[in-house]
Design a protein around this nucleic acid. Structure first.
Lengths: 147, 147
DNA sequence: CGCTACCAGGCTGCGCTACATCCCGACGCG
DNA sequence: CGCGTCGGGATGTAGCGCAGCCTGGTAGCG
């Protein structure tokens, strides 16, 4: 368990181009999916640029899997995503995913704090800190989000 | 359990028109699906007419569910059907279906034999008998299949 | 200067749907 | 028993509508 590190860099925010590289998609596809999947809703900064977080990237990967590997239509994938999100705790052995809560280690100084044996409590703290930072940055519309 | 009686009459063979009424589909759709799904392969009698059996109707219903309710593409539904058929015994709690073996009570004299408490052994025997009859009829190309 | 946003339109293939044509089996009739 | 008729089925080809992606144009931002 611990951090899901499927080649997703240790950053908190991603621009659309980065997400495209990570997920091997095209920007217009991501924008199209965003218009079709309510659960894919990246935040936007003051200038309107999309700000993807890790869970958005997970969502993109899941959508891609549903569409291209499992062979769902957009409508079917949307429904499936919804029921998956709804039945979190119900249907104990649903499909595969919904693995666990995601731990998100932040950046450099976070790693500095996190020296020593990997402790679950410490990881949780780091994650909370990262989430707070996210919220801060989102609130601070004047502040630059340059990763 | 016992016989799955989802409004499927107690017959062994069905013509395409009957299947269409039972499953609320169109003949050309059934023929099209047949060209796309290897697992939907009804036998044909001497004059080339399709002879659907109960399991074919089950397959039709499953395909319909996958396409129209769950939102799969044809390719996705095909893949799903294959993995479902393959993993019969693996993946203990897969989706819903693959309920059990289907008991197939045949026709009048069969019902006459099957008097008394519903016995699994008797049901199995009846099914075997029905299957044998099926094979006989398919082999006997001269004999009419008039249901 | 590159990356991004947004909009409008175009394009391709999936999944039917609609003919056209032929064949077969069931039924009544003499 | 053969015969005509008639409805259902088989096959093939062609067309249609839309989901889902792709392109181009214009503009803003860093």
């Amino acid at each position: 368990m611990s951090t899901q590190d499927r080649r997703i860099p240790n950053k908190l925010f991603f621009k659309i181009g980065e997400v495209c590289e990570l997920t091997d998609t095209q920007p217009y596809v991501l924008r199209y999916w965003e218009s079709e999947f309510p659960s894919l809703a990246p935040a936007k900064n003051s200038s309107g640029q999309r700000i993807y977080r890790r869970r958005d990237i997970e969502t993109v990967l899941r959508i891609k899997q549903l569409l291209y590997e499992e062979g769902f239509t957009i409508a079917g994938a949307k429904k499936k995503l919804e029921t998956e999100a709804a039945g979190k705790g119900a249907t104990p052995s649903s499909e595969a995913a919904l693995a666990a809560a995601d731990g998100a280690v932040a950046d450099d100084d976070a790693a500095a704090i996190a020296e020593g044996k990997p402790d679950l409590t410490r990881e949780a703290l780091l994650e909370v800190r990262a989430e707070l930072r996210e919220i801060l940055t989102l609130l601070d519309r004047g502040g630059k989000i340059t990763n």
